[in-house]
Design a protein around this nucleic acid. Structure first.
Lengths: 341, 341
DNA sequence: GACTCTTGTGTGAACGGTCACATCAGCGCA
DNA sequence: TGCGCTGATGTGACCGTTCACACAAGAGTC
């Protein structure tokens, strides 16, 4: 296939007048090589354009630096941004990143998942914000080194290989913001949970309502897209024509909510306050600009990689922590009237 | 690291009572194996849970089925959607997909690029809608099998390894739509071009104006995000307070345009028509819902993979073609007054 | 019945690295 | 002078697979 043979370690050795093993030592940063020899070898490497053969290295038992990211739909903001964070951190550390995309709607089975591993024992990072990811995480063989970005901290059985953002607290703060504006209660357009339990963001919303001594209306569940948000929002407005404030599971749902409100003749924020989640690049430019919670998905991706890296090599450097969730108040939330709540 | 050794081809051979070579034949679908033997081997494979070792296979000279996607920012709609298409098609064909993310703002250099290749000769797909991607494509060593998703067909020197969507015609149609609504002229909020030449979408816009015998106003160049669209839109409205129709390079720019229009007190579509490009999932839910052009990025991704596959193996199956660009008329475009143009 | 030809199977040598061990020179020290 | 130690380098085996080739057994041909 290739016309010119790639140079091997033995070609370099010949060019530098040393044995192939010495070349191997130079490549792997072994101490025991005389400075002059090292330089000669490095010159030869440069001149020949030598690069170590990955396959040979792996076959010979050297731990190879690669990982696979398992994620659903890469066009969702959270997934895409986390992926970017992982890729950047991984590349900086010299890891090759493979990717395997799950169908968001179909539950993966163990056999299929096993087949997705590039090789047995390939390290993985699972983006498990949704049910497909969470299920994949459960099904992964036990001998695979893995870390995961999860929606919720596992309450009873904390797993040190999981990382997450404090969605719950963030949702509480966003809800408090709305209550503080004078709304009698806050409705919830919820994201599907990744587990059988209530989504974290929904929990946080409940926390704030409980704390304020307000009865929580039943949340309405949407999907992940503006389309599903729009449908769910219609249901919500139908069921609760007197709603004055809605917390949405993400910015895309909020976008659907804004449209449904417009269609129902409810002005935002005058008659209805809407708060989103994620702070997508679009949110500041919507009409009205969306009040939302900024989440550091990129940082979370970096963190998940750092964790995996230390799992594989305990001497790997630590990671700077991700940014705290931050409420960004824009135009879509306003004072709640003193009227019906 | 792993407690249990993975079974090798020799383990399978022993279990089936044949030589390792026969096992290799079965794995690779060689004709010359007796039916009974084949079955025995396959049973052994199943029982032992044997999977071929990728590295050994590659080292022994077997073409290994993997590819690397080179792309900038994975959170942009076009990139993310194309990536999804590539990944899906590749996985179906048994390829492992690696990913390498370029900085959209920094030009890659040849040395760095070479280092990104998982191995010399690794097949690649470059998503080259922007300048970073286009530059990377140029710098790739000649011996790498590569296909690319490009912004524009290379006019003079058509490269059969490139695929693209007919942005130009699509832009012409969108512009005709606006002219057909009675607008005297159409302004352009342009995407940065991937090359030194004018962006395809901008060309298409020019085509339509020329065809209608209308003088083309100078296009205003934005970036890729709502933020950059907003900035550029302000400039555009400043320079051309009498504009009644604007074609935007993508939906995110259009979003920025919508906001700038609102801030300038220009009602859309009554006083100003805005048309986007891409049909992102959000566009139908914006206020007003965006008239835009639907582009089949996912199909383009699949096509680019099919092309690469056939480059590597001429007997690989053909691909179904991508969908034609389609103008989706929604609320953001309306009749142009007979007043100032 | 000796000859090809086909079919099914086995053997040895790569592929390009790493690892464990062997070797060798130079040094300090009794 | 001879011993052990240390630092620098070389040698052989091996990782799990494929490839090229050798070989045995049976069928078809003259």
């Amino acid at each position: 296939m290739r016309s010119v043979q790639e140079p091997t370690i033995r070609d370099v050795a010949r060019a530098a007048g040393v044995s192939y093993q010495t070349v191997s030592r130079v490549i792997n940063g072994n101490e025991r090589v005389a400075e002059a020899t090292r330089r000669r070898v490095q010159t030869a490497i440069g001149e020949l354009g030598y690069r170590p053969n990955r396959a040979a290295r792996e076959l010979a038992g050297k731990a190879v630096r690669s990982l696979t990211v398992l994620t659903s739909d890469t066009s969702l903001y959270g997934n895409a941004t986390a992926l970017r964070g992982i890729e950047e951190a991984a590349r900086t550390a010299g890891f090759a990143v493979s990717i395997s995309v799950l169908d968001r709607h179909a539950a993966p089975d163990a056999e299929e998942l096993r087949a997705r591993l590039v090789r047995p024992g390939e390290p993985m990072i699972v983006i498990a914000f949704d049910a497909a990811g969470a299920r994949a995480l459960e099904l992964l063989p036990a001998d695979v080194p893995v870390t995961a970005l999860v929606e919720r901290p596992p309450g009873d059985d904390p797993d040190p290989r999981h990382v997450w953002l404090d969605d719950r607290l963030a949702a509480t703060r966003a809800t408090r913001h709305l209550l503080g504006l004078g709304h009698r209660t806050v409705h919830c357009l919820a994201l599907p949970s990744s587990t059988a339990r209530t989504a974290q963001r929904t929990e946080g919303w409940l926390d704030a309502l409980r704390e304020a001594g307000v009865d929580a209306p039943a949340p309405v569940e949407g999907g992940w897209t503006p389309r599903s948000g729009h449908l769910a929002a219609r249901t919500l407005l139908d069921r609760h024509p007197d709603a004055t404030a809605v917390l949405c599971g993400n910015d895309d749902l909020a976008l659907g909510m804004l449209r449904a409100a417009r269609e129902a003749g409810r002005r935002v924020p005058d008659e209805l306050s809407v708060v989103g989640f994620d702070d997508t690049p679009a949110s500041a430019y919507l009409a009205p600009a969306l009040t939302t919670v900024r989440l550091d998905f990129e940082g979370l991706g970096r963190t998940s990689f750092g964790l995996l890296h230390r799992l594989l090599d305990p001497s790997a450097p630590g990671q700077e922590p991700c940014a705290e969730p931050e409420l960004i108040v824009r135009e879509s939330s306003g004072p709640g009237g003193t009227g019906s709540g």
